[in-house]
Each structure stands twice: as structure tokens, then as C-alpha cells.
């Protein structure tokens, strides 16, 4: 079973994402901010990361930059999932090493389409 780390400071979003991803046969771990996510990755690299941008302590972009510099940090497939929906933000995320990008609000179909796009399902 593939592991997916869901990183979002909103428990509601984490719950919605968990439900969708569990139906897609992923095993879910959760983190509330970038620092928690980085700690989780240092323990065990997930196959996929669904990543919010704006979070307290460490934001998504900072986390992604740190992750990609970690040993084995190039492996997880990172899908941003954020309300930031302008070209500049999307381009920055891609440059920092994001594999895909979901603009909130999202639904099951979008998550499935994006995960399929990057070969996770």
C-alpha cells in the first residue's frame, strides 16, 4: 500500500483529503505544518505528499525546499493543494520541485485526475 502524507493546518481539509485518498488505497499520515511534515519525512519518506501552502510554523514552499535537499527527499511525489491560484505561485511551486498542483476548492475527481497525472494511481 502506498503512503501519502497529508499536510494542512485545517483538520477539515485533512479529513476530506484522507477520505478521498483512503478510497484510492493510500495509507495516510497527517501533519499540521511544514515542520511536522519534515519531521515525519525524516522518520519515513512517504510515496506522496499532499501539501498546503499557507501554514503556521513552516509553510508548504519552505517545507518543499527543505525536503528536496534531504537525503532521499527527491523521491516523494509532491502535489500542492492550496488556495493560491495565480500563475506566479504555481510557477514558484513547480520550480521548487512540486510535481503537480491542485487549486482549492478541490473534489474527488480533481485529486484522482492529478494523482493519475503523476503516476501515483
Amino acid at each position: 500500500m502506498k503512503q501519502c502524507l497529508v499536510v494542512d493546518d485545517s483538520s477539515v481539509i485533512r479529513k476530506v483529503a484522507r477520505r478521498i485518498l483512503e478510497d484510492m488505497n493510500f495509507e495516510i499520515t497527517e501533519a499540521e505544518d511544514g515542520q511536522q511534515a519534515l519531521d515525519a519525512c525524516r522518520k519515513s519518506m512517504p510515496d506522496a505528499i499532499l501539501l498546503d501552502w499557507n501554514m503556521p510554523v513552516m509553510d508548504g514552499l519552505e517545507f518543499l525546499t527543505s525536503l528536496r535537499a534531504e537525503d532521499g527527499g527527491e523521491n516523494p511525489i509532491v502535489v500542492f493543494c492550496t488556495t493560491e491560484n495565480d500563475v506566479a505561485h504555481i510557477a514558484r511551486a513547480i520550480r521548487a520541485g512540486a510535481n503537480e498542483y491542485i487549486m482549492k476548492p478541490f473534489d474527488r475527481e480533481i485529486v484522482e485526475a492529478k494523482f493519475q497525472e503523476v503516476g501515483l494511481i
Binding site: I90, I94, Y101, I102, M103, F106, A113, K114
Partner: peptide, 11 residues
Amino acid sequence: VQRGLPIQMLL
């Protein structure tokens, strides 16, 4: 634009 379109293609 999020159904089936890779983000790179959107950009």
C-alpha cells in the same frame, strides 16, 4: 482546467 490537464500544460 484541473481535470486531466497537467499543471505544466496549464502554465
